[in-house]
């Protein structure tokens, strides 16, 4: 697991991987959304609004996936003290929050023509909004810790504690009566017709690749900042020595 612990080695792989991930992610996701807009027939009940499926579901998946990544990285940081884990967790926070916000916005836009309302306080929608606020808290906490050069351990604990919300979001439509429908895809079974399912799976794959590319980009930015700061500090110390 410590194979990637060496930042130079990680950077070499990340540099090689960033552009392919971003490009293939953009092509696949935008292509699948265009496919959904033009080639897919309307749903028997919802009509054309079913096309929102292809942006809403990947956004929801990545909003929850982002926090799962933060939780796993936090665990690796706390237990194995993996040096890159804290950086990975911090890099996943902003894209995760962005996709959670997109999920809420597209869901709201979808709710108006189908349910007849922009927003309701049911279990699914409320727990997803809680996730967005958890992201805001995490971003504020981890960036202030990083700015003051303090250990990111508190942010890691927050990342782990906040993960309790993920199964709650997932189960909210099963545990409680909610306006949001129950899951369509469960353990290899799907109640989504193949004409909708295929573009949905490709869009989800595409947005996931894109997410990976963005996380790598942000990790490289954080690493570069840290290296620049360390070097400047070292130089300042050397300069002091020379003066003395």
């Amino acid at each position: 697991m410590h194979g990637f612990a060496n930042p130079a080695r990680f950077l070499r792989i990340a540099k090689w991987l960033t552009a392919p991930l971003l490009v293939s992610g953009l092509l696949l996701s935008f292509g699948a959304v265009a496919w959904g807009l033009t080639q897919v027939p309307p749903d028997r009940l919802m009509g054309d609004t079913v096309r929102i499926l292809f942006v809403h579901v990947p956004a929801a998946w990545l909003g929850m996936g982002g926090w799962s990544a933060i939780a796993i990285a936090s665990l690796m940081e706390l237990v194995w003290r993996h040096p890159l884990a804290a950086i990975a967790a911090r890099a996943a926070a902003v894209p995760g929050a962005a996709f959670t916000a997109l999920c809420l916005i597209t869901g709201s836009i979808w709710g108006r023509p189908t349910w007849g309302t922009w927003w309701v306080w049911d279990g699914r929608l409320t727990s997803m909004l809680v996730l967005l606020f958890l992201y805001f808290g995490y971003i504020a906490l981890s960036s202030s810790l990083a700015r003051e050069g303090q250990s990111s351990r508190i942010a890691a604990i927050f990342g782990l504690v906040g993960a309790i919300n993920i199964p709650i979001i997932n189960r909210s439509v099963v545990w409680w009566n909610s306006l949001h429908q129950p899951p369509s895809i469960t353990m290899g079974e799907s109640s989504i017709d193949p004409v909708f399912l295929w573009p949905l799976l490709i869009a989800t794959l595409g947005f996931s690749l894109l997410f990976g590319g963005v996380v790598l980009t942000r990790m490289r930015a954080i690493l570069a900042d840290m290296q620049a700061e360390a070097r400047l500090r070292r130089k300042a110390l050397q300069a002091e020595d020379i003066v003395r």
Partner: peptide
């Protein structure tokens, strides 16, 4: 509604990718 939802997602995604790339280039 379809165009609004798709538009928000595509614009949001592009802003996310562009801002991350710019931040990385500046840091490197």
């Amino acid at each position: 509604f379809v165009y609004a939802a798709v538009g928000v997602t595509l614009v949001g995604t592009l802003v996310l990718v562009a801002s991350s790339l710019l931040a990385m280039r500046r840091a490197e």
